[in-house]
Design a protein around this nucleic acid. Structure first.
Lengths: 114, 114
DNA sequence: CAGAATCCTTCGCGATACTG
DNA sequence: CAGTATCGCGAAGGATTCTG
């Protein structure tokens, strides 16, 4: 049985779409990288990501928590203390991040190199 | 010398940002996948990607060509024939695509599985 | 400190129709 | 076939201020 390419490639696209639906956008991966490298507090994360605003960060953190890509813990002290930590699920993104990083470094070299 | 995490992780973020600047968005990777799996003609690519419109496809193809991620060739026949083909540079994205695909498949399993 | 509230601008993207 | 033209919405994102 013969398969047509434009049918066949759909099955390759769907999981990529699924992944992009969750992690695409300007900030999500950067936030995961920041938290994965040890930043826990809201302002700490905010300062670690150039140009992000508190509004956007708050919204993205909410999204990521819903997708179980980070964990939010409130310590009921005064003043209130909130910590964001990675989850095992966000660890599973390391391959994606590594691939993007590698490609990005190469891309930068290509752009600058000419 | 001691390094702070929120300083250190910046260097990890920049290449990821670079990569996302080029390939993020709803359609770019899907288009590359389509062309990489053999679709060459405008309408062929359009049909292979559910829900994309000709306007958006035209714009994205232009972007991708500027970044040398695809090649546009015009055969001067009548009616005019245009072909889009992958470049060696777009081939370098296969690792990224593979990582995203793998993660997306796993994510779908996780979502459906509960 | 950890956000929420408000206002505003830009942009991605869709729908529809049209051209050489 | 390979696009372009026009219109427009809704969401993303920015700037600033405010609160417990």
């Amino acid at each position: 049985m013969i398969k047509h390419n434009h049918t066949e490639c759909t099955s390759a696209m769907i999981p990529v779409r699924d992944a992009l639906d969750v992690i695409s956008g300007k900030w999500k991966l950067q936030i995961i990288i920041s938290i994965s490298s040890g930043n826990k507090r809201f302002r700490e994360i905010e300062r670690s990501i150039p140009k992000i605003t508190s509004k956007v960060l708050a919204k993205e953190l909410k999204d990521l928590e819903e997708h179980q890509l980070i964990k939010r813990t409130v310590y009921d002290e005064s003043p209130v203390l909130v910590e964001y930590t990675p989850t095992s699920y966000s660890d599973s993104l390391q391959d994606v991040i590594a691939a993007l990083r590698k490609w990005g470094m190469n891309h930068r070299k290509k752009i600058i190199g000419k």
